[in-house]
C-alpha cells in the first residue's frame, strides 16, 4: 500500500474514446485506467456505458481538468457534486486535478493556467483544497502543471509551494515528471532539485508523457513517446518509492492501443532492469504544434468515436 492507503495500481494508460471498442473487445492486460473526469460526468450515452464496463474489470482513477482550484471564482459545487457521484458510481480509486486555474468571471478557458507562487495564493489554494476534500469525502490528489510563464509576484519555487500545499491541506500529490521536465526548461530550474525536494510520502501517482520542443520553450503536447530525459527523471523519482502507480498520458496523434500499452510498459522495464531508454528517443520531438499547443488532455475524448457514426435509413 502507498500514501493515504492508496494502492500501487501498477502501470496504466488513459481511457480514450478511440480505444473504447478495442478495450471492450480485447480486455487488454493493462493494470489500470485513468479517465478525464469531465468527459464522463455528464455523459448518459456510450462513453458512460463503456466506463461502467471498464470499471467492472479494471481499477479506474479520475483525473480532472476543470476544478480550477487556483481560481478566485467561487468553487463550482454543481461540478463537484457530479464528480463525487461519478467517483462513487465507478469506485474511483482516487480523484486528482491540477495546481492551476482554468478561468474566472464564470468563464472556462479550458487551459491549465499558472497561479502566482506566493504565500497569499498558497493560503487561497490550501483553503479550497480542504473545502473540496471535505465535500468529496476523500483526499484530493494535486498534480504539478506544466507552465510557460512566471509572475513577478512569485516568492517561492513550485516545489516549495507543493510541499507547503500538501502539508497544510493534507492532500496527495500526482507527480508529472514530464511537466517537471517541461517547466524546468521553460523556467530554468534544476529538475533534479524539484524531484528530490518533494514530500515523497505524499506522491500517490506519477504521470509520464511526450512533449514538443519549440526551440525557445517546450510544450506539454502529449502527442508522442516519452523522451529520454523524462524517463530519467521518472527513474530518479521512483528511487524514493517502493512502487507508485504510473500512468502514460498520450492524447494527440493517438496510436493503436497496443502501442500505447507498450509505451507505458517501458516504465516497468526501466525500473526492473538496468536498461536505458534508446538513444533515438533522446531526440526532442519538434513539431508544428508549438504555435497551437492545442492537443492536450483537456480535449481528450471529448468527441464521439467514428464507430458511432449514425446509420441512415
Amino acid at each position: 500500500m502507498s500514501r493515504f492507503n492508496y494502492p500501487n495500481l501498477g502501470f496504466g494508460v488513459g481511457l480514450r474514446h478511440q480505444h473504447f471498442n478495442y478495450v471492450l473487445d480485447n480486455r487488454p492486460r493493462v493494470d489500470w485506467f485513468e479517465i478525464i473526469s469531465e468527459n464522463f460526468i455528464d455523459s448518459r450515452g456510450w462513453p458512460r456505458h463503456v466506463l461502467a464496463r471498464v470499471a467492472e474489470q479494471y481499477p479506474v482513477v479520475m483525473h480532472g481538468v476543470s476544478m480550477s482550484v487556483g481560481s478566485a471564482d467561487p468553487l463550482d459545487f454543481g461540478y463537484l457534486t457530479r464528480l463525487k457521484h461519478l467517483a462513487r458510481e465507478i469506485g474511483a480509486r482516487w480523484v486528482s486535478d491540477h495546481l492551476c486555474w482554468t478561468g474566472i468571471l464564470g468563464r472556462n478557458t479550458h487551459d491549465l493556467l499558472p497561479i502566482p507562487l506566493n504565500e497569499e495564493a498558497l493560503k487561497h489554494v490550501v483553503r479550497r483544497v480542504r473545502t473540496i476534500q471535505d465535500f468529496l469525502e476523500r483526499p484530493l490528489v494535486m498534480e504539478n502543471p506544466s507552465s510557460y510563464l512566471s509572475f513577478a509576484s512569485d516568492t517561492m519555487r513550485e516545489w516549495e509551494f507543493l510541499n507547503a500545499l500538501a502539508e497544510e491541506a493534507d492532500c496527495g500529490l500526482l507527480l508529472d515528471v514530464n511537466n517537471v521536465y517541461v517547466s524546468s526548461v521553460n523556467h530554468g530550474f534544476d529538475p533534479l532539485e524539484y524531484i528530490e525536494s518533494l514530500p515523497h510520502e505524499r506522491v500517490v501517482q506519477i504521470h509520464v508523457a511526450g512533449h514538443t520542443h519549440c526551440g525557445t520553450h517546450i510544450v506539454d503536447t502529449h502527442d508522442g513517446p516519452v523522451m529520454r530525459g523524462v524517463w530519467e527523471l521518472y527513474r530518479l523519482a521512483c528511487r524514493h518509492h517502493d512502487g507508485v502507480s504510473t500512468l502514460l498520458e498520450w492524447d494527440s496523434s493517438l496510436p493503436e492501443f497496443p502501442v500505447l500499452h507498450a509505451e507505458v510498459l517501458k516504465a516497468k522495464d526501466y525500473l526492473t532492469a538496468d536498461s536505458s531508454p534508446p538513444e533515438s528517443e533522446s531526440l526532442e520531438h519538434v513539431a508544428a504544434g508549438c504555435s497551437a499547443r492545442a492537443s492536450r488532455h483537456a480535449l481528450a475524448g471529448a468527441h464521439p468515436p467514428h464507430s458511432s457514426l449514425p446509420e441512415y435509413v
Binding site: 479550458h110 487551459d111 510557460y148 510563464l149 509572475f151 513577478a152 504555435s291 497551437a292 480535449l299 471529448a302
Partner: peptide, 28 residues
Amino acid sequence: IVIPSETLTGAERLAIYSRSYHARLLQC
C-alpha cells in the same frame, strides 16, 4: 507582471497561452 525567461519576453510567454486558447477551441 509577467517576467521574461532566458529566451522569451513576458509578452511572448503570454502569447503561448493566447495562441493555444484559440487553437484549442477551434480544433474542438
